[in-house]
């Protein structure tokens, strides 16, 4: 039971890592705590849901679509709204993203009703059994995708020109501008990329979780925890933080009580912030 719980937790943690990496990227570059982040997960999940329901496209195949959709949404949000407050005191961007959360979540509620929905694929019941452990194939595939996505984002930031421009802007906006980087464009790209990877997480989530328009806020909250655990703004930290949180939640849910697992999450978050604000890796941004 212990090993099963740990495996379940790791598989869950992979998903956490993907959308938290997007959250971490946005915070790291712009200092924006994106409260609407969970709503981007929701949008990605619904993109896959509708493509499956209306077009019979497998959620794994619809990943590029939700990535593209969310990239456009993210780019637009940053370009039209958040770029205007990025220089203002941070509270402005928090509240602004909260406003965006209200808009997205409630528009989705109007469009798609409050119903709980899920995707039933042909393979959703099948799983791998070995040594008494049960590992659903879908979850395993999701986990693999998750690791690839976080690794890909890390390489992207380190190996490509736009990635370097993003990191340069994160370190020193003025200097980057002097070097010819268009900060507004870079910010919009950053938000777009963060949103795209989050949309991918949404697609992965839709393949075996129940989805509904109001699901966003709880995902945002998980992203807080993951990112604080791994170190704010440090992308590989999101993977570590996601896995740790996934395992912790799975263990408390198995041995204690599912409700207590989220209370515990917050408690850990609280303690981490006080004692290790740079995260377990010690590489987070500390103000």
């Amino acid at each position: 039971m212990l090993i099963q719980a740990i495996i379940t937790g790791l598989l869950l943690g992979g998903i956490y890592a993907v959308y938290s990496a997007g959250f971490s990227l946005i915070f790291g570059v712009m200092g924006v705590v994106n409260i609407a982040h969970g709503d981007l997960v929701m949008l990605g999940a619904f993109t896959s849901y509708w493509l499956f329901t209306l077009g019979h496209i497998d959620p794994f195949l619809s990943i590029p679509f939700s990535a593209l959709t969310l990239f456009i949404v993210g780019y637009g949000i940053q370009r039209l709204i958040i770029n205007r407050v990025v220089e203002a005191p941070p509270i402005m961007s928090y509240i602004c993203t909260f406003g965006i959360h209200l808009i997205i979540a409630n528009l989705a509620l109007r469009l798609w009703t409050a119903d709980y929905r899920s995707i039933t694929t042909s393979y959703c019941g099948s799983h791998l059994e070995c040594a008494g452990l049960v590992i659903p194939y879908a979850r395993l595939a999701t986990f693999g995708m998750a690791v690839v996505m976080v690794g890909g984002l890390y390489l992207f930031l380190n190996r490509t020109d736009i990635g370097r421009a993003i990191r340069a802007t994160a370190q020193d906006r003025e200097m980057a501008r002097l070097m010819g980087v268009r900060a507004n464009h870079v910010y919009a790209m950053t938000f777009g990329i963060g949103a795209a990877i989050t949309g991918v997480a949404g697609s992965l989530i839709s393949s075996y979780f129940v989805i509904y328009p109001q699901m966003g806020l709880s995902y945002t909250v998980t992203a807080f925890c993951v990112v604080v655990l791994g170190g704010m703004g440090y992308i590989p930290g999101a993977l570590l933080g996601g896995l740790i949180l996934g395992v912790l939640e799975s263990l408390t849910a198995t041995y204690w009580n599912a409700g207590m697992s989220s209370a515990l999450t917050f408690f850990i978050l609280f303690l981490m912030l006080i004692f290790m604000p740079a995260g377990i890796t010690g590489k987070g941004i500390v103000e």
Partner: peptide
């Protein structure tokens, strides 16, 4: 400071609710 205080207080409120 900054976002860390905001997130910590948020975590505290959610922990109490739970």
């Amino acid at each position: 400071r900054g976002a860390y205080f905001a997130i910590a207080t948020f975590a505290f409120a959610e922990a109490t609710r739970q």
